[in-house]
């Protein structure tokens, strides 16, 4: 997991950008580019428009550098510019995307299958009736192999876009929950719900995977 960049490092980085340091700029582009493209794509109609939005956002970033004060982390600030640019562009395209489309329409449902627990009226209501497959203690070379990463990547790709982005930023890239709320314009509660659903689905995918390899 990447170390969260500390605000003082941000200020040094901003100084370098202001001075026109291309290496510093491309480092940021490489770090944030893939997420920025996906986030932009949530609000606009095509990949091509998303690319334009990302470009426009970077332009906004370099033009706004003088005003960066380090109150939010640099990457959060860049994402705010991106999300605003993308939303404006989406409006101009007459494209309004309901939150449920981005976040998933099952947020008020339990994340775990209720049939794994005793039902209402059962003396053991709410307690495990069927335990999930125990995949702890998988040999390390199996758990950490490319196949496992493939399973995780595949499970994330299946998630509604906002769930996918929250888990990528939090667990793949190591952002804090504050940063993610700010960057994606989510309330703390929504961020937590989205992250938990995403992690639950990735955990289930791993459970399925390890169960099938242990039976093979």
């Amino acid at each position: 997991m990447a170390d969260p960049r500390k605000p003082p490092d941000d200020l040094v980085l901003v100084e370098r950008l202001r001075a026109g340091d291309e290496t510093a700029f491309m480092m940021l582009v490489d770090e944030l580019g893939p997420s920025m493209r996906r986030v932009a794509r949530m609000y606009v109609s095509s990949d091509a428009v998303a690319d334009e939005v990302v470009q426009e956002a970077w332009l906004g970033v370099v033009k706004g550098l003088e005003g960066f004060e380090g109150r939010a982390s640099l990457r959060t600030w860049i994402f705010r510019i991106l999300v605003n640019t993308a939303k404006t562009r989406g409006l101009r395209e007459n494209r309004s995307v309901p939150f449920a489309t981005l976040a998933g329409d099952d947020l008020d449902q339990p994340t775990f299958d209720p049939s794994a627990f005793g039902g209402p009226g059962d003396p053991n209501a709410g307690a495990w009736s069927t335990l999930p497959f125990d995949w702890r203690g998988m040999p390390e070379e199996r758990a950490e192999g490319t196949e496992t990463l493939h399973v995780i990547g595949g499970a994330i790709a299946m998630l509604p876009p906002m769930q996918a982005e929250v888990i990528r930023l939090r667990d793949v890239l190591g952002w804090t929950s504050d940063e993610v709320c700010n960057a994606l314009d989510l309330t703390e509660t929504n961020q937590r719900v989205l992250l938990h659903r995403a992690r639950t689905k990735v955990r289930s995918a791993l459970e399925e995977h390890f169960r099938s390899v242990s039976e093979a």
């Binding site: 490489d30 770090e31 995780i152 990547g153 994330i156 888990i167 990735v202 955990r203």
Partner: peptide, 22 residues
Amino acid sequence: EFRETIRLSGGLTVEQVDETQR
């Protein structure tokens, strides 16, 4: 298993930015 899921997710490689876009 949640802890392990989070730890393993941290091992995913970050995708590349398209060369033309760069």
